[in-house]
Each structure stands twice: as C-alpha cells, then as structure tokens.
C-alpha cells in the first residue's frame, strides 16, 4: 500500500504517554499546539497509555499542573481536527469515549499502520 507523494501530510504526532507520569505528554501537547499556531498541518495519534490523556474530568489544580485534558479540548480551535485513538487501548482501559475532551476516530492496529505511512514525518512523544 503506497500513498502518493502529493497526498502526504506533513506531521503526525504519536502521543503515547500517560498525562502526568512524566512531562512528555505536556511536551507533546505543546508541540502540537505550537505547530498548529504556526499554520503547519498536524494530526495526532493516541497510542497505548497515551489514551489516558483522554480521560474526562481530570483535575490538576490541587497539584498546580497544567490540565492536559482541558488543553486537548482546545485542539479544534487550533484547527487540529484529525485525531485518532488506539481502539485496543481504549477498550483495555475501558474508557468512555463519549465523555472524552476530544472527538476522534478509533483505529485498529492495521489502520494505525496505514495511517502512519501517510505522513512525511512522525514524532513519538
């Protein structure tokens, strides 16, 4: 399966960390928003533990941290509209995607493989 060069998209960020265990999830969100703020096309794929960033009702205030869930809710305002979730991980963690701060398409592993080769660049965080 090949994707014509003309149809390739610039950047897919592969988000695969839990939101607060490390600073990587925050860094990934910052990269995504900054990239979009400079009018670059960026799409997101949440894989594995990364889907934990999508839990509704995160409350980071008592820890004085930035709320990743609420920041992700601003993706549409940055025109980041293509967002994909790892369906297996969503089901492994029994997440209710109807309450997720982000709306996205659920993909199986084969669909994720196909998605990744449609981009010029991949960034895993």
């Amino acid at each position: 399966m090949t994707v014509a060069d003309a149809d390739k998209k610039p950047l897919l960020i592969v988000m695969r960390q839990s939101p607060y265990g490390t600073s990587l999830a925050k860094a990934a969100v910052d990269v995504a928003l900054a990239t979009a703020a400079f009018d670059q096309l960026v799409d997101l794929l949440f894989v594995g533990d990364g889907v934990l960033q999508l839990l509704a009702g995160q409350d980071s205030q008592s820890l004085g941290k930035k709320n990743i869930g609420r920041q992700l809710a601003s993706l549409p305002l940055y025109d980041i509209n293509q967002v994909y979730f790892d369906a297996e991980a969503v089901s492994r963690y029994n997440l209710d995607m109807s309450s997720s701060p982000v709306t996205a398409k659920l993909l199986n592993p084969q669909e994720m493989q196909q998605l990744m080769v449609a981009y010029d660049h991949l960034l895993g965080l």
Partner: peptide
C-alpha cells in the same frame, strides 16, 4: 473564560476562532 476552559492562554489563531 478561555483560560478557565482550556487551562492555557490562546495563541492568535484559537483566540480569533473563540
């Protein structure tokens, strides 16, 4: 209101849209 909703200050593009 944006800050309360999204826990961040907006860049120009999302501010315009908001």
């Amino acid at each position: 209101a944006y800050y309360r909703e999204f826990d961040s200050s907006p860049a120009m593009r999302p501010l315009v849209k908001y």
